[in-house]
Nucleic acid binder design. Structure first.
Length: 509
RNA sequence: GCGGCCGUAGUCUAGCCUGGACAGGAUGCCGGCCCUCCAAGCCGGAGACCCGGGUUCAAAUCCCGGCGGCCGCACCA
């Protein structure tokens, strides 16, 4: 039996939301790269603009745009180089894999620096010491394989060795440009940067459509704050939400999967959520996903990451996850408290002082960084998964109305008796009123409704015989298929309250 | 990347084991008829064997390699 996942992938391809890149023309195009078709792109843009409206503007985020390509030095400082070029070795008998450096260090109990050694030298150590597979005890090893998880580039016509890389996260752009942005915007701590950007990771095995890609998009917030005074301004901002319940899967509940609902107050009092700033952002993002993007609360949780799972830079780390029957819990937002790891790394490698003056002007300090990072493609994919509905009669996407890629469709019941012209006129009127409108006259009226249901269009306007007499049209609700009759003149206002304010169709009368 | 299964029009699929004629069907799509409020009907049209090599008189079918998909392992910084 096909699950919702398969149905969404099929529908998305068929109706122009997204599909794998280049396949039709060049067989064997590498996996993990997707094209957004017109409907998917429009929906993605809508998610981005909601994020801007609800997060960027109200929170005083300074949105910037930094290059996709950065010097390799940047990633040396950020620690990505070291963590991105793993050397792995595989046991021929049980196919278990190990990082070569860890295998040698742990088996021989040494802590020498193995960084500079060649593959041959490393292999020699393994053979000379008769290192066995920790799992099955075999001494049969494959050769050393390198995993390069960043895309490196040689910038400049004569460059031969890689000297730059496509960024694996947008964060480094914000960190490197932090001081400049701070100066130009006459910044005060906490100082918040934001980026909408593409990132690139050479994943070993991209899988599951938009869930794991090699090129994808992030919506990132970078909150730089004074570690000695993290609660400046957030004490007040958090006040209205002290009783808001944040849903956590704590490390100690990992086994049982029990989700704990903790109010912001409890999070602070127990020290679990560290400070007002982090607590506020945890609240904000849960509310954004629930109330704005429409994910049901019971499908959301913050999963606390434990040592070994956490990124190399993170002191505390929660993944905001969403649950679907098909995919289980999937990470949508990476919420990391990165301390001054990045800024101090860049200070060390570059030799430049990246500190700023404290708000009281008395000392120089290196801000700490808290970063919630949204995986945009995954969010869009889950919006579709959670919106999917079907019954004996039809398939439809019950998307939040304002997220639908087409907001309103206009049909003439028939092409004759002036209905076509009238419908086109209404279509043009709705476009100029700012709606994403769509006109269709092909096939039967029923077929046209079905086509719109399938891509989640919340409203359909039909011009019929009566329209020609009294200037009214029918307005159909995607979810109930009910219709009401409204005057053409009042159509824009009524559509606005239906689509953007969530009014019931019956209340439009 | 390893192991298992798999790859046929936009989508879903028959054919493959046992090689043989223009690769069959459904749905969708386009045009027309009909003139209509929930995928009705009729006529017409476009559309596919993942890529490369091998075996053979002959390959969608058998063999090898590559690429891709799903699941598990690993990875997910």
């Amino acid at each position: 039996m096909r699950g919702t996942y398969d149905k969404i992938v099929e529908l998305a391809t068929r109706r122009g939301f997204f599909w794998p890149s280049s396949r039709d023309v060049y067989a064997g195009a590498p996996a993990g790269f997707y094209v957004y078709g017109p409907l998917g792109l429009r929906m993605k843009e809508k998610i981005v603009s909601l994020w801007r409206r609800e997060i960027v503007l109200p929170e005083g985020v300074h949105e910037i745009e930094t290059p996709n390509i950065l010097p390799l030095k940047v990633f040396e400082a950020s620690g990505h180089l070291e963590h991105f070029f793993d050397k792995l070795i595989e046991c021929k008998r049980c196919h278990s894999r190990f990082r070569v450096d860890k295998l040698i260090e742990e088996t021989l109990g040494i802590e020498e620096n193995l960084e500079g050694l060649s593959d041959e030298e490393l292999m020699k150590i393994i053979v000379d010491n008769g290192i066995k597979c920790p799992k099955c005890g075999s001494k049969e090893w494959t050769g050393i394989k390198k995993f390069n998880l960043m895309f490196t580039l040689s910038v400049g016509a004569e460059a031969e060795e890689p000297n730059a890389a496509l960024r694996p996260e947008t964060t480094q752009g914000s960190v490197v440009e932090f001081r400049k942005s701070y100066m130009t915007m006459r910044g005060k701590l906490p100082f918040i940067l934001g980026q909408v950007g593409r990132v690139f990771r050479n994943e070993i095995s991209p899988r599951r459509a938009l869930i794991r890609m090699r090129e994808f998009q992030q919506l990132e917030i970078h909150v730089f704050f004074d570690p000695d005074n993290p609660d400046e301004m957030y004490r007040e901002k958090l006040e209205p939400y002290m009783d808001y319940k944040i849903r956590f899967l704590r490390r100690e509940d990992r086994e049982t999967g029990r989700i704990v609902e903790m109010t912001a107050r409890e999070g602070l009092e127990t020290g679990y959520t560290i400070n007002h700033l982090i607590t506020y952002w945890l609240v904000l993002y849960q509310k954004f996903f629930n109330e704005v993007l429409g994910f049901p609360l019971e499908r959301l949780r913050y999963r606390e990451l434990i040592e070994g799972e956490k990124a190399h830079y993170a002191l505390a780390h929660w993944d905001l996850e969403v649950y679907t029957e098909d995919l289980g819990w999937v990470e949508l937002v990476n919420n990391a408290y990165r301390t001054d790891y990045d800024l101090s790394g860049h200070m060390k490698v570059s030799g430049n002082d990246l500190r700023v003056t404290s708000p009281d002007g008395k000392r120089k300090l290196l801000p700490h960084l808290y970063e919630p990072s949204i995986g945009l493609d995954r969010v869009l994919f889950h919006e579709l998964m959670l919106a999917y509905r079907e019954d004996e009669e039809r398939v439809w996407l019950q998307l939040p109305r304002y997220l639908a890629p087409i907001e309103v469709a206009v049909f003439p019941l028939m092409k004759k008796d002036g209905m076509r012209e009238k419908a086109k006129e209404i279509y043009r009127m709705l476009i100029s009123e700012g709606f994403v409108a769509f006109y269709d006259e092909s096939g039967t009226i029923g077929r046209r409704y079905r086509r719109m249901d399938e891509v989640g269009t919340p409203a359909c306007v039909t011009v019929d015989h009566q329209t020609m007499e009294d200037e009214t049209v029918t307005l159909r609700d995607r979810d109930t298929m009910e219709q009401v009759r409204v005057g053409i003149e009042e159509l824009p206002a009524k559509l606005r309250s239906f689509i953007y304010e969530g009014k019931d169709i019956k209340d439009l009368l």
